[in-house]
Amino acid sequence: MPTASSSVPSQGSDRKDLSRPFRKSSLDVASFVFGGLTGLATLLILAILAIILGNIIWHGWAGFSWRFVTSGTSQGMFDVDQAGVLPMILGTTARVMLMTLFVLPIGVITAVYLTEYASSTSLFTRIIRGAVNNLAGVPSIVFGLFGLGFFINFIGGGIDEFLLPNRPEPVWGKPAIFWASLTLAVMTLPVVIVATEESLKAILPGLREASLALGATKLETIVMIVIPQAMPGILTGGILAVSRAAGEVAPILFTGAAYYMASLPRALTDQFMDLGYHVFILSTQSPDIERTRPILYATVLVLLLLTLALNFVAILIRARMRRKMRVAAH
């Protein structure tokens, strides 16, 4: 190709033609096609998202009202004029927050161990890393069964048997918001661990050295220098965990979600009503699906808005923290 060869400095036999135009010689078909494909793929995703959201908002708006989100569902769970989702909103919010309380400390401590203490090449560390990665690939219904078998039957049942032996009914050995949140925490653990590890690794080694050289212990360095620096990354992990957990139904199916409860949960050992599970109930248990459909859509809309709101709160906290660091840092 003449254009290609002339752009390479020649071996001195002929002088460079300085008047050669910069104009491009031909259309670059490959990059045109590839660029078009990437654009189309992006558009497709946007279109799918728009269709889903548009559909939900369009249909959900009909059943959506102030009364709907502020009242319980004492009668007529499937009746547009009487249904309400406040207990489900509260239940889902509570289980997500409880889960965050469990998953953040455990995940952060695990990640700190993996990056700061464990040798990255040891067999033990490799096994933990492998386990974390595999945990991320386990189907959520399996987590639900695990929660039932391990948390409720084994731990909860054990507590009842050995610590509370004279109760007529199980206290801990039954589905409860506590066990549902723990199950969700186990499920979202890998997200938090990976996000925390990444942010710990991104911290300049010079900062750790500076602290150690001043006579700080390793623990002091981690607590005072490393973790504060990693906080935005840790919160990103928390945000991802919240997003994942808010809409999950399978892990709480056997571990805490209730079909119907006359009152709100008052203790950690109570069951709760959940938005995602309620969507499932509405779409499978209704005697008259046509009459229930507006509630179904509205409930889905509420679930979306709640997930958005929970995320928004977490993002606000992170932004505040970043700003604080910048004020300290600029």
């Binding site: 700080a216 660091m325 300290a328």
Partner: peptide
């Protein structure tokens, strides 16, 4: 390390205030 201090090749202040950098240790 309290008695043998060190200054590194690349300046590595903590991402804290000037005051806190010194008050830390």
């Amino acid at each position: 390390r309290k008695r043998v201090g060190m200054v590194f090749q690349r300046s590595n202040p903590f991402p804290k205030s000037i005051y806190e950098n010194i008050a830390y240790a």
